[in-house]
Design a protein around this nucleic acid. Structure first.
Length: 530
RNA sequence: GCCCUCAUCGUCUAGAGGCCUAGGACACGGGCUUUUCACGCCUGUAACUGGGGUUCGAAUCCCCAUGAGGGCACCA
């Protein structure tokens, strides 16, 4: 049985890069009729959290990347959390110890750092080996167990990169059991991939140099290693690594500009608006803390968009899961025949490891946005509504209170003119609350002699309409559009009065949904106030 | 510093020796459509990192240089 797995460590949110790895594994397993396993690698007791694990599961489900084995599916209840499998690792480690393939070490972290420093200074690579001189003697203190790497060249037969050989003198004896008794990543992956029957490992290229270690471990344990395939990496457009730090960096830059703009140097006004203490903000700005949640709230209060990095960031920004997946798949993979917009099923039909490329890619948000628009336009109304509601669940816009019926009306109106749900959410606020009037639009279209004349003509036309359904409103709207020299000359004045700005969906649909009272009162307010 | 990987338009990519005058998509420019904004349609600009080989012939194969990225933890 062919099996792939995605094995994130629960030390944060699910990153887009991780999502791509998960997708590739998911596609690969589904394509070949195998099984897809989800395993939580929580061997780092300090950094792993249960909340993070829960968040990752939730994001995987939002993306629609379901697993055949893993938390909540198949097997015992905690079988897919490494922290629950300690006895398994211990037995294996004891076996290696007995076979003489592993040994205890007594250096403290400080001693190791000092040894490394000496080599660094001499510009020589430091490799810990069993036979090296100067190893610490047995002590009472905590010990660590290392694997005795064989002194031989090791060749990885990578399904994407081809053969890659690492010379014998490049290896070092990796730690397989930490002093807290937990296995290290290197040991736990090998033990689990074997135990769970994983046959194909698709992981990011940053793991390439780990592979010889894993291969040696398989051999020492007498096991058949899986097929490895290392995927190219994904970077920001400026070729920096995509990381949560991008968010704090962007927030700091935006906040600095805000402080200058609004003369709020010590962030006292912002602190009040964001409901946090000024000290917190100052500590954040001074880079004393790297709190991404704080960065998000602060950015939110000054209307600053932070770069999306984690899967949930994209959800909050109003991207559809399928569009994100489709876009992400195309970095490093091309289905051929110039195909780009692919449904999940089409991706499944076309996917293969052979068609994954070797070159690192960059994350072009503009193309993602375009792709999301494509998905929005081709989605059915039911699909769109479901996706929109999943967006509404995690955000807080005025349309949060809208009924399904109203949401459907809005979607019909905005479908062709939005690239993300957030875009619609920002633009449709005037349906739910008084518009924030755009002063420039007002002075250009409303507070002019012509604009006033139009509004005075428009009001009675609409006031005469009692049946406010779209069909009944159509003749009145036609009449309004025919006002003035050229067709539609009066539209902008009405648009500004009704929506607050120079841009909105077509007026007929807009006022039909807005309702008679609000439409008329907004028009009237502009006539009488001038 | 050492080891490893990669290298086609600004970006994602197609290209597995002649089909390449290098194709597609995003972005950008121009036009059409239009009650605003979009959508849609038409159209334009734009690339084989450099140098050596191999070959009748190289974006495609080899070598070197350069550039980019990854790794060198009691993190994964």
């Amino acid at each position: 049985m062919m099996k792939t797995r995605f094995a994130p460590s629960p030390t944060g949110f699910l990153h887009v890069g991780g999502a791509r790895t998960a997708l590739f594994n998911w596609l690969y397993a589904r394509r070949l009729g195998g099984k897809f396993i989800l395993r939580i690698e929580d061997t780092d007791q300090v950094r792993s959290t249960a909340e993070s694990a829960a968040g990752i599961l939730q994001d995987m489900l939002w993306l629609g990347l379901n697993w055949d084995e893993g938390p909540q599916v198949g097997g015992g209840k905690n079988e897919y959390f490494q922290s629950m499998r300690l006895t398994t690792y211990e037995e294996l480690i004891q076996k290696l110890l007995k076979d003489g393939r592993a040994y205890e070490c007594y250096e403290t972290p400080e001693q190791l750092a000092a040894m490394r420093a000496i080599f660094d200074k001499a510009k020589r690579p430091f490799r810990y080996r069993r036979a090296m001189p100067g190893r610490a003697l047995r002590t009472e203190g905590p010990t660590v167990i290392r694997f005795d790497m064989p002194y031989e060249d090791i060749t990885i037969h990578d399904a994407i990169l081809g053969p890659v050989t690492v010379r014998a003198d490049e290896h070092d004896d990796i730690i397989i059991r930490k002093s807290d008794g937990f296995p290290t990543y290197h040991f736990a992956v090998v033990a689990d991939d074997h135990a769970m029957g994983v046959t194909h490992v698709l992981r990011a290229q940053e793991h390439l140099m780990n592979t010889p270690k894993h291969l040696a471990l398989y051999r020492a344990l007498g096991w058949e290693p899986p097929t490895y395939a290392h995927t190219p990496l994904v970077f920001n457009m400026d070729s920096t690594k995509m990381s949560k730090r991008d968010k704090t960096r962007a927030a700091r830059a935006g906040l600095q500009a805000y402080a200058k703009r609004t003369a709020d140097e010590n962030y006292s006004k912002l602190a009040v608006a964001a409901k946090v203490s000024p000290e917190q903000i100052q500590a954040f700005m001074a880079k004393k803390v790297d709190d991404t949640a704080l960065a998000a709230t602060l950015a939110g209060t000054i209307g600053l968009d932070l770069p999306e990095i984690d899967v949930q960031d994209f959800r909050r920004s109003g991207y559809m899961a399928d569009a994100l997946l489709n876009f992400i798949a195309l970095i490093g993979w091309a289905p051929g025949e110039n195909r780009e917009v692919l449904s999940r099923q089409e991706m499944l039909n076309l996917f293969s490891v052979e068609t994954i490329g070797k070159t690192n890619g960059r994350f072009d948000r503009k193309k993602l946005t375009w792709m999301n628009g494509e998905y929005i336009r081709k989605a059915s109304m039911d699909e769109l509504l479901a996706a929109l509601k999943s967006f509404i669940e995690v955000t807080d816009y005025p349309l949060k209170a809208a009924s399904d019926a109203v949401l459907r009306e809005l979607l019909a109106m905005y479908k062709d003119r939005m690239a993300t749900f957030a875009e619609m959410a920002r633009n449709c606020g005037f349906f739910f609350q008084d518009p924030v009037y755009d002063e420039k639009a007002k002075s250009k279209f409303v507070n002019t002699d012509e604009g006033q004349a139009f509004l005075r003509q428009i009001y009675p036309i609409l006031d005469a309409v009692t049946d406010w359904r779209k069909e009944a409103l159509t003749p009145a709207m036609e009449q309004i559009l025919s006002l003035g020299e050229k067709k539609g000359a009066a539209a902008q004045a009405m648009r500004v009065a009704v929506s607050g700005g120079a841009v909105s969906p077509p007026l007929l649909e807009t006022i039909a949904l807005l309702g008679r009272d609000k439409t008329l009162s907004r028009l009237k307010a502009f006539i009488s106030s001038h």
